[in-house]
Each structure stands twice: as C-alpha cells, then as structure tokens.
Amino acid sequence: MASLISCPHCGTRPKEEFFIRGDANPVRPAPMATDEAWNDYVHLRVNPRGRIREHWQHVAGCRRWLVVERDNFTHEVFAVTDAAKAGEGAR
C-alpha cells in the first residue's frame, strides 16, 4: 500500500501520485442535523487499528477520488474503488 496503489482507472501507480485526505467513513450530515452530528463528522474519528477505508485522490493521474480499503497495521490493500461508486454502495 505504502509503495503502490492500484487505481481502478489508471492501474498500479506509485504512492506519491496520490493525495490522501483521511477516513472515508464519515458521511456529511444533512444541513439541519444536530450539532453533535456535525462535530462528529468534522472532528471525531474511530481511528481503529486494522481494516479501514480511506480517501485517496489520484492527483497525478485521473484525478478521481478513490476509497482505499486497507489494513493500517499490515498495510495490505483489500480494494480500491472510485469514491462515487463506493458512495452509491453506502447509500
């Protein structure tokens, strides 16, 4: 993971072509959701050790936002999907 990422659009590329945003799990709340929901979204993270989903953007390639599903201890990557597709799954 930390060396190569398989972009679903561009193929396997070195890590330095990507920009990493962070946890992909938080979903932006509705505008009128509670203060707690908004604080949770912007500030709080489960931050588990193990399997996580993370937002990476292929800035030096297709510029698509991707969801990289991986283990943050072993650095094994399970799946890389386009974020728009991953979002459909979540909805």
Partner: peptide
C-alpha cells in the same frame, strides 16, 4: 490553485455526486 481544485473534485465526486 491545486488545493481548491482537489477540494472541488472532492465535493463533486464524493459529497454530491
């Protein structure tokens, strides 16, 4: 310039596809 573009792409692709 680069940051805003990424920010817009995030909004368009992830927040409001």
């Amino acid at each position: 310039a680069g940051g805003v573009l990424s920010h817009m792409e995030f909004a368009a692709q992830v927040l409001w596809p």
